[in-house]
């Protein structure tokens, strides 16, 4: 087991290296020049040159790449160019708000989707099944931008059910007050695709031999679904949820902007607008590493759920 984990971690290195080089090329080589923003509106060429020197972007690309690699190895990305805030502080403070929305969202989304998917899988082929699927398809066809604008206006402002936007200091206030509408919007856009996907996972399992065997043994249909099918379908479900998690961190940027949640997604958009490379690079590398780790974790969970799986 330990050997397997080590080997997998070792295999991540080339991928991470690829990510590093790609990110470096995309942002240092062709990306904007932050010096012009940092120089203010009364800049002159001498001052631009000085800022480039202070930031180290006048060095050759090889030197800059080497510095970047060193930063990754030491996990010290320095400070943001526009605010002077250390990257570690940026990440540690923005992660909390993002997770406050994303963790409940993911848990709720998974539970609700599994429940509904099992339900429709149970009545597969019926009118209910078809109606639910059509409703999901319709729900998925509307842009998240429209959901945010309409929900914020109608549910929060017109009906007053939720705060319009905002973020507080205490965790419970954030979770039970401010994060509610963002989570609701998140659920609205994410349940439909998950439900559709999970339904196919369950249907895949239902057509397997062991289900026929179970039926032949006279087990009740709910029992077959809830115990046998769910257990086996849990593998693709877990992979899907796990591998989606790191990407969600950034994908929630629209929600974070509209609801003024100081999370990672909003931060990265801001960093791109400011050409704040240290922040962009650090977040990319960390999210890439997290994506790989979560994939590994998903594989390990496979094993835990289904001992038959051979880790190779």
């Amino acid at each position: 087991m330990a050997a397997y984990i080590l080997r997998r971690l070792w295999q991540m290195l080339p991928t991470l290296l690829g990510v590093v080089v790609l990110v470096f090329l995309l942002f240092n080589w062709v990306g904007g020049d932050p010096a012009y923003i940092l120089a203010g509106k009364m800049s002159n060429p001498a001052q631009i040159a000085n800022i480039r020197k202070q930031l180290g972007i006048d060095e050759s690309y090889w030197v800059q790449l080497w510095i970047f690699v060193k930063q990754i190895v030491t996990m010290d990305f320095g400070a943001s160019w526009s605010t002077g805030e250390t990257i570690s502080h940026v990440l540690s403070t923005r992660l909390g708000p993002s997770l406050t929305v994303l963790v409940p969202l993911t848990i709720l989304e998974t539970l609700i989707s599994i429940g509904l998917a099992l339900g429709v899988a149970y009545v597969r082929g019926s009118l209910t099944d078809r109606m639910v699927m059509i409703a999901c398809t319709v729900g998925m066809s509307i842009s998240i931008l429209v959901y945010i604008i309409v929900f914020q206006y109608v549910l929060a402002y017109k009906f007053g059910w939720f705060p319009v936007q905002g973020w507080g200091d205490s965790f419970s206030e954030n979770l039970f007050h401010y994060a509610l509408l963002p989570i609701l919007i998140g659920l609205t856009v994410s349940i439909a695709p998950s439900l559709r996907l999970f339904r196919t996972f369950f249907l895949d399992e239902i057509s397997q031999d062991y289900v026929r065997t179970a039926r032949a043994k006279g087990l009740s249909e709910p029992r077959i679904l809830w115990v046998h099918v769910l257990r086996n379908a849990a593998i693709p479900v877990v992979t899907y949820v796990m591998s989606n998690l790191p990407a969600l961190l950034i994908g929630a940027f629209l929600i974070e902007r509209f609801f003024s949640i100081p999370g990672i997604g909003r931060e990265i958009i801001l960093a791109v607008e400011r050409s704040d490379f240290p922040v962009i690079k650090a977040i990319t590398v960390y999210v890439a590493a997290a994506t790989m780790l979560f994939n590994l974790l998903a594989d390990l969970l496979y094993k835990a759920i289904d001992p038959r799986v051979q880790l190779k």
Binding site: T15, V23, I250, G251, I268, T284, V287, M292
Partner: peptide, 11 residues
């Protein structure tokens, strides 16, 4: 493939 899928889609 793994490099492309590791980098956040938005970035």
């Amino acid at each position: 493939y793994s490099v492309f899928t590791s980098i956040p889609y938005l970035l």
